[in-house]
């Protein structure tokens, strides 16, 4: 033997070096095969695509390099408005969603109005398309010419997103509350904590942790839906792309806008995936105990 195994019962972990080498070799071979196969696949697709008769037209219409470089900076600066809408809306949605989810858990008779309002709100705003809410608020409210109420398209567009997404997020929180095992509530109540205290200290912290992955999903969706505010007129990225595109009859600006959205959502989806895996692992660990 070219190596020395430790005596049986030893504290130090031990693996046969020949086995380790063989496994490493196999792992290297697998990695090479995978990368090679992927490259070949991409090459074939590229060759087939670029040799199709219509390709030059497609390329000129959607992937025009000169169009891209001339419009992309404008798109980026217009995208700042999307970011602003998103950053304003997100915390408001969280607060609204949590408040509504909590409101639906209030079971004392005096709170019946709150429960009914929360229920109706969720039913209505989950049922109405977001873009319809944006039209209603963005065109409707300014038309009332109310004193002391802002009339801005961005303001009402953001408000519509908050109302629409608030209903979804409220349901996510509600599912989270339902996912906490009733025995936790029982244990808390048996210690003399009130229903409210039980919610605040025992149920909600666990609920929020359980729904973090779906919450992140809703926020990825919200990032994209900021583009819906374009229907009201403000020049955000989609609107900007539309302006650029209609002046040149070329669709490359739309592709540029799409690239900007993807650049933002891909990191978010990866974060969501990571949070999901981590919370699955934690739950498996808890299940063991």
């Amino acid at each position: 033997m070219a190596f020395l195994a430790p005596p049986p019962g030893s504290e130090i972990p031990f693996a046969d070096p020949r086995r380790v080498r063989a496994l490493q070799k196999r792992a290297r071979r697998n990695a090479l095969t995978g990368v090679g196969s992927l490259l070949a696949f991409v090459a074939i697709i590229a060759v087939v695509l670029t040799h199709t008769p219509g390709w030059p037209v497609v390329q000129d219409t959607f992937f025009n390099a000169q169009q891209f470089t001339s419009t992309f900076p404008d798109l980026l600066s217009a995208f700042m408005l999307n970011v602003q809408i998103f950053i304003t809306a997100e915390p408001l949605i969280l607060i609204l969603g949590l408040a509504v989810a909590m409101g639906r858990t209030l079971h004392a008779p005096i709170f019946l109005p709150i429960r009914v309002v929360c229920m109706v709100y969720v039913d209505v705003f989950r049922g109405v398309p977001t873009i319809l809410v944006i039209f209603l608020l963005g065109f409707g409210v300014p038309a009332l010419r109310l004193q002391g109420v802002p009339n801005g398209a961005v303001f009402w567009g953001t408000a519509a997103l908050v109302l629409s997404y608030g209903a979804y997020v409220a349901e996510v929180f509600r599912a989270g509350i339902a996912s906490v095992h009733p025995s936790q509530t029982m244990a808390s109540r048996s210690l003399g904590l009130s229903a409210w205290q039980t919610n605040r200290y025992v149920v909600l912290p666990q609920a929020v942790r359980n729904v973090l992955p779906p919450l992140l999903n809703d926020f990825i969706s919200l990032q994209k839906d900021t583009a819906l505010v374009a229907v009201l007129g403000p020049v955000e990225v989609l609107r900007q792309a539309q302006i650029d595109s209609s002046s040149s009859f070329n669709y490359t600006p739309y592709v540029g806008a799409a690239i900007i959205f993807i650049a933002l959502t891909i990191p978010m989806t990866r974060l969501a995936d990571w949070v999901q895996t981590r919370s699955n692992r934690q739950r498996r660990q808890q299940a063991v105990n």
Partner: peptide
């Protein structure tokens, strides 16, 4: 519930 304590089979720790 302040006067009577209870402990369950399944611990139910937070």
């Amino acid at each position: 519930r302040r006067t009577v304590g209870i402990v369950f089979q399944s611990f139910n720790l937070f």
